[in-house]
């Protein structure tokens, strides 16, 4: 009987550790908001942030901007649910977020900039070329593409970060976010 109790407590310890790790690394509906492929931590950088959010950004070594000013979204999959890989080409497309300023940048899985001879790592609402009507498209590809292009090199898994500052309607407003469509894979 004692052995079974010990086993049960060990399972409880493992469960406690695993659930903690999951809530810090991935987040849950309590701490994150997901819209399409994009996920944002709703209390990022705030003084009243919950312990999971605080631990998430401390562990990753990031310096988040408070969600009182900006919503920072991250995507690691395309709109079909496949993980973003540098061996595939994608297009990030949609209408411009209705906000004072926004920026989009691409990183490898660990948040490192991807080396490329063109020294292109991101676009923002001041540097992006867009079509009339406010639509835009940014191609993520290993080799050069016309228009807005972000090189993916040989980074392996990719992460795309979208930061929207002062969205119209405030921090809880539903913002139109772009989709990430896979074009082709090698």
């Amino acid at each position: 009987m004692i052995a079974k109790v010990i086993i049960f407590v060990v399972i409880a310890v493992i469960g406690g550790l695993t659930s903690s790790w999951y809530m810090i690394e991935r987040g849950t509906r309590l701490t994150t908001r997901t819209q399409g492929v994009w996920t944002t931590w709703v209390a990022a950088g705030r003084a009243d942030a919950d312990p999971y959010t605080r631990a998430h950004f401390m562990r990753r070594g990031m310096l988040p901007v408070s969600t009182a000013l900006a919503q920072t979204y991250e995507a690691r999959t395309d709109s079909d649910g496949g993980a973003l890989f540098s061996s595939c080409d994608y297009v990030v497309e949609g209408t411009e977020p209705d906000a004072a300023f926004w920026s989009l940048a691409i990183f490898d899985d660990a948040g490192r900039l991807i080396p490329n001879p063109a020294e292109r790592y991101g676009y923002n609402s001041a540097t992006l070329m867009r079509s009339p009507g406010g639509r835009f498209g940014i191609t993520l590809a290993r080799s050069a593409r016309p228009g807005n292009w972000l090189p993916t090199g040989g980074a392996g898994r990719l992460a795309v970060q979208l930061r929207i500052e002062e969205p119209r309607g405030g921090e809880k407003a539903e913002i139109s976010l772009p989709v990430i469509r896979r074009l082709s894979c090698r």
């Binding site: 469960g15 406690g16 550790l17 809530m23």
Partner: peptide
Amino acid sequence: TGGIVHIMATL
């Protein structure tokens, strides 16, 4: 026990 471990690990 699981709850305490969860809280401790998070902090």
